[in-house]
Design a protein around this nucleic acid. Structure first.
Lengths: 247, 247
DNA sequence: GTTTTGCCTTGACGCAGATCAAAGGGCTGT
DNA sequence: ACAGCCCTTTGATCTGCGTCAAGGCAAAAC
């Protein structure tokens, strides 16, 4: 119980370094949804048996918007973009999934968005129906998933502020700061923020065009706030960029 | 169980006309969080005992962003705006709460946003800690709340598309269509869509200024798509406006 | 009654960011 | 090596929506 509380401030559902009862998924070759000790060891064995490994390459599609949802996923490595398309081709990226993120929290019949891999990606995959049944029998897991869904809701609301009420420069700054925070939870705090997505993806996440994203990054770099490196960005003036991103 | 499934497509948490085991809350004078038969009658009695009535007038504040969250609320009548403020005063409305809506789903320690009443408003109020404890003992309730949170997440993602990738006219059209759908679930389908919020509120929800909202409504009215009436709007050309709002 | 206040509408103008256009770099495949 | 492709950057121009300003109306306050 104490373990569950603790996790509230460290959202990733799996791969949690604090996990006490982590089991090794023989197929995925990674710890599967361990929920940081919220489950009994025997529950973990059952859950682990339900999981199947998933490996896919960059640009491969995991699932598509409006298709029947067959599975839920727990990302174990790599990253993905989650997006909605308008009939005329306009695209809104609703989020980026990083290792530890859980896809399919809503347990809905149909996928709410499409997802495809940005990089080589691995995940634990569970049959939606089997997972749902298991969830019904494990209040701890359900509580954990609810917390996770609530956290995503909060992030979505923060994104609404960014989309509705911020300038292009603020949007880009907030994006970098937000991503830095998420990477920081996963690994040793690297100086550089990896950007596995394209400028177009960033634009479609922030409600901007590629050109504007590029211009804002260039401007921040020119003013020595950031340094653009291959596949990422390094923050030079953290105070300045946090001031821009501040809520 | 069948009842719970059924509800997935009719989100309001209380006031559900299908509720079989509805109890009457002596204080609120309305059915309190009945969860449409998902709870045992005795559970409902306990829950009902936890509830306190809340009545407040238009413009009154229910709770404020970043304050410790003491209660969760189930709106029984009236409506509220939920918003986040930036330090410089810019405001983003993250949602409007209508009768049946539940505030505080996330069970977080602090409020994620501020809420104030748009009209005279009544609600069932529960102590957050007591409600949380009860939730831990009732998997049905938890599942229901999880579904509700998932639904809100979906709505937030749809709003992200609207904020990021739609024109002013499309935003206003989508707003009206969305609100119509929500009102329709609550009452007999009235011809007019009540708009208890100001133009400023609509603007702060859609990422527009008051003037632009006013201009778009005027334009739609001039083109006989809608009719502006006191405190609301009537749809004249549903096909046209749905085409504008379509995802 | 008059004044005040808040909300809505409309017009004129300006600007942040979109659009259009072009060029360069890094991949991949041949 | 070269061609083809995608991604990124940069410049020039355009435009949708924001900003500024003014006026109308209704309800509340005096």
């Amino acid at each position: 119980m104490a373990a569950v509380r603790e996790v509230t401030s460290a959202p990733p559902l799996s791969l949690c370094p604090n996990a006490k009862a982590a089991v090794h998924c023989d197929q995925c070759r990674v710890r599967s949804l361990s929920v940081c000790g919220a489950l009994d060891p025997d529950e973990l064995v059952i859950l682990d048996r339900l999981s199947r490994p998933l490996v896919c390459e960059a640009r491969e599609t995991l699932f598509e918007q409006d298709e029947p949802a067959e599975a839920v996923y727990n990302i174990t490595s790599g990253s993905a973009r989650l997006y909605k398309l308008l009939p005329d081709g306009r695209r809104q990226i609703v989020g980026f999934a990083l290792p530890g993120d859980f896809l399919g929290l809503s347990m809905a019949e149909k996928n709410e968005f499409s997802a495809d891999a940005l990089t080589h990606l691995t995940a634990c995959q569970f049959s939606r129906t089997a997972f749902s049944e298991f969830m019904d029998q494990s209040p701890h897991l359900m509580r954990r998933l609810h917390e996770q869904a609530s956290h995503e809701l909060t992030m979505a609301q923060d994104q609404m502020v960014i989309l509705g009420r911020r300038t292009a420069e603020e949007k880009v700054a907030a994006f970098l700061i937000g991503l830095r925070k998420r990477w920081a939870r996963l690994s040793t705090t690297s100086v550089t923020i990896p950007l596995p997505m394209t400028r177009q993806d960033i634009g479609d996440f922030l409600g901007l065009t590629v050109e504007t994203v590029s211009r804002m990054l260039t401007r921040l770099a020119r003013e020595k706030v950031i340094l653009i490196v291959p596949d990422g960005v390094r923050l030079l003036d953290v105070a300045r960029i946090e001031a821009l991103a501040e809520s």
